[in-house]
């Protein structure tokens, strides 16, 4: 089983991934996460905006997935902290995300993920995560 299949297999077993309704598309080491719009993802119904927590969960999961894809650990990394910048309102539409492993050290990794909707260069939110990479 290659790394992409391992990752897909893991995500299929994570309940919060199912609750969110997100999935990932992988081509080699290139990965895009997709969060199809659902009414339950709304945070403010008067302006039909996605909840910041739903966006944050999606971005954190994307960061973890990208790190798993390019590293060789048995288990997914654990999050130490996340910083999320909310740049634009998340509209009632599908949300996409990509992540870059900024640094992969022996114990720590720094990953940046970015979410967008209709236009790739108009990000909705950016997350920077530090994760603990377990090597046994």
């Amino acid at each position: 089983m290659n790394r992409a299949e391992q990752l897909q297999g893991f995500l299929a077993r994570v309940p919060i991934v199912q609750t969110l309704g997100m999935h990932i598309e992988i081509k080699g080491d290139d990965m895009t996460a997709v969060l199809p719009f659902q009414k339950k993802l709304i945070g403010n119904f008067t302006i039909q905006a996605l909840h910041g927590g739903a966006i944050g969960t999606f971005l954190e999961m994307t960061a973890m997935a990208q790190l798993f894809l390019v590293s060789d650990t048995e288990r997914p990394a654990r999050t130490i902290n996340t910083t999320i910048d909310y740049l634009r309102q998340g509209k009632a539409e599908d949300l996409y995300a990509r992540a870059t492993v900024v640094k992969l050290g022996r114990r720590m990794a720094s990953v940046r993920s970015e979410a967008w909707q209709a236009e790739r260069d108009k990000p909705v939110a950016v997350l920077l995560a530090h994760l603990l990479v377990k090597r046994d």
Binding site: R13, V14, P15, I16, Q18, T19, L20, G43, H51, G52, G53, A54, G56, T57, F58, E60, M61, R75, P76, T79, T82, I84
Partner: peptide, 24 residues
């Protein structure tokens, strides 16, 4: 709740759930 788990082996709630809770 089972649907909020982020680590199926440990049965622990995902960090994103805490993000939602604290943000809200």
């Amino acid at each position: 709740s089972d649907g909020l788990v982020g680590d199926p082996e440990a049965g622990v709630i995902h960090g994103g759930v805490i993000t939602t809770l604290l943000d809200n």
